[in-house]
């Protein structure tokens, strides 16, 4: 019972964060803020969804189920490494191409070209 509630809570958190990521990607004005929305919430929501799956597997404790839980946590470790790195790589590539983020006109900025 408690396990089910925990699963549902984690699933809800994951889906809500994913929804935020979708809105961010669709509505934010430029590349960097879109990547910010997608990069941060994608990793977080995937981890919370996968943790919910792992918890759901713990309903009956047996070796095959524990093996599945272990595999899920391998995926979690993999995603928590690759997600931020790929976001960083995209941002870095964009910055290297001198595609600087747009700045409001009131603030003076010599870096803008």
């Amino acid at each position: 019972m408690i396990l089910n509630i925990a699963c549902l809570a984690l699933l809800t958190i994951g889906v809500v964060i994913f929804f935020g990521a979708v809105i961010g990607v669709l509505r934010f004005p430029d590349f960097y803020s879109r990547m910010h929305a997608a990069g941060i919430s994608d990793t977080m929501s995937t981890i919370s969804l996968l943790t919910a799956f792992a918890l759901f597997q713990l309903h009956d404790l047996s070796w095959p189920n524990l093996l599945v839980v272990g595999k899920i946590f391998f995926i979690v470790a993999f995603i928590s490494l690759t997600g931020p790195t790929s976001t960083h790589a995209l941002m870095h590539a964009g910055y290297q191409r001198r595609n600087r983020p747009p700045v409001r006109k009131q603030e003076p900025d010599e870096d803008m070209t």
């Binding site: 993999f78 490494l81 690759t82 790195t85 960083h88 790589a89 870095h92 290297q96």
Partner: peptide, 19 residues
């Protein structure tokens, strides 16, 4: 020169490629 600055990417790949 460009690649040398990107330490994060290199280290992550060093970790992940064998796996």
């Amino acid at each position: 020169k460009l690649r040398e600055s990107n330490l994060i990417l290199a280290q992550t790949c060093r970790l992940l490629v064998p796996i």
